[in-house]
């Protein structure tokens, strides 16, 4: 695990969690910095239009401070706990908005494609960008539940146990949901590329 922020390098995840629970500002800054962009993107993808994902993340952190007594050391990283709180913040906003459709299209999302410096030639770049576009298009066609489990497990790289904690499901249910979502994604990619 890469530790960035104010906590010194070499700090283990368990030590970081302990300091986080003790409301050590350095530990909070470390977690905040390293998880911020992923949390914002998670919120951005799920919030109704008109809601600011940065505000949702801020609300998530404020609630985390107030609920710090609820954070238990169960082998999961702090991020899993934050995703769980952020998920509730987002669901509250969805309920308030009264929307039936929970997701909004992300075409034009500020995510953009990563410009990775490498030594690939122009043709390889075109092929790679086309493949990335296919994956994104297929992902958007998945159900909200499929998108959520794949985002948490594959993009945010949470463990099965951590995803289970976020979604309040069993480990087996998460593995099954992940496998089925991957299979559906593969089918959709093939349809997009056809």
């Amino acid at each position: 695990m890469r530790i960035i922020g104010s906590v010194e390098s070499g700090t283990s995840e368990r030590d970081l969690l302990t300091r986080f629970r003790d409301l050590d500002p350095d530990a909070w800054e470390t977690v905040y910095r390293r998880s911020y962009s992923r949390l914002v993107e998670y919120a951005r993808r799920r919030l109704p239009s008109g809601y600011d994902p940065h505000d949702a993340v801020s609300e998530c952190l404020a609630r985390a401070v107030d609920r710090i007594d609820d954070l238990a050391d169960q082998g999961a990283r702090v991020e899993a706990w934050l995703y769980g709180i952020l998920r509730l913040v987002v669901l509250e906003q969805i309920r308030r908005s009264g929307r039936q459709e929970r997701e909004r299209p992300v075409a034009g999302s500020p995510l953009g494609l990563a410009e990775v410096a490498d030594d690939r030639g122009p043709l390889e770049h075109v092929l790679r960008d086309e493949q990335v576009g296919s994956v994104r298009t297929a992902f958007e066609r998945l159900s909200v539940d499929d998108q959520e489990v794949l985002w948490l497990r594959q993009v945010a790289e949470l463990s099965v146990a951590e995803v289970a904690a976020v979604l309040k499901k069993g480990h087996g249910a998460v593995r099954q949901a992940n496998s089925r979502a991957l299979a559906r994604l593969r089918t959709l990619i093939e349809e997009v590329d056809a």
Binding site: Y36, L113, V135, R136
Partner: peptide, 21 residues
């Protein structure tokens, strides 16, 4: 194998912007 492949593809399709607070 499907998870390894598609997981890598998803992370490439949705890269971490790296934008911090």
């Amino acid at each position: 194998e499907l998870e390894r492949f598609l997981g890598a593809e998803l992370r490439r399709a949705f890269p971490d912007s790296g934008a911090g607070p």
